[in-house]
């Protein structure tokens, strides 16, 4: 049954598209960052779900266990989450600076102010 074999990718895609929609349709910069975060989370889920092996357990060696899931995506995403929060903080501080110099965080208002 194809629905049960590929559902993880579909969840990822739905989540990804929600993030994408927020990024392109909102002009508030903070909302855009939230959209980017959702997008990022969907990529995390994509990676983690490719590491799963059915019948396997978490990659911590234990007795009577032979099948482990793939530890490599876990490592990549583990670091990516923490890097993600650091870069989000950077983006948010950029927004704060933009607010300080433009007086707004709406993208179209910033563009107007640049042109005039």
């Amino acid at each position: 049954m194809i629905v049960f074999e590929l559902f993880n990718y579909w969840i990822v895609i739905v989540l990804m598209m929600i993030g994408f929609f927020i990024v392109i349709s909102r002009s508030n910069l903070i909302k855009k960052i939230i959209g980017l975060n959702i997008f990022q989370t969907s990529v995390f889920i994509l990676y983690i779900s490719t590491g799963k092996i059915s019948g396997g357990t978490a990659p911590i060696i234990a007795e009577n266990v032979t099948v482990y899931s793939n530890p490599l995506p876990h490592v990549l995403i583990l670091t990516a989450i923490v890097v993600g929060i650091a870069t989000t903080a950077l983006a948010l501080s950029l927004v704060i600076r933009i607010k300080a110099s433009y007086g707004t965080v709406e993208e179209n208002e910033i563009l107007q102010r640049d042109q005039s």
């Binding site: 960052i33 983690i48 590491g51 978490a58 990659p59 490592v75 995403i77 583990l78 989450i81 903080a89």
Partner: peptide
């Protein structure tokens, strides 16, 4: 269910704690 204990750990610590607080601080 995907056996990613370490990742769940990180996400629990980061996603539930620091990240929303930073967002709210910005707001």
């Amino acid at each position: 269910s995907m056996d990613a204990v370490d990742v769940a750990f990180t996400e629990a610590a980061v996603g539930a704690g620091i990240s929303p607080l930073l967002m709210l601080a910005t707001l």
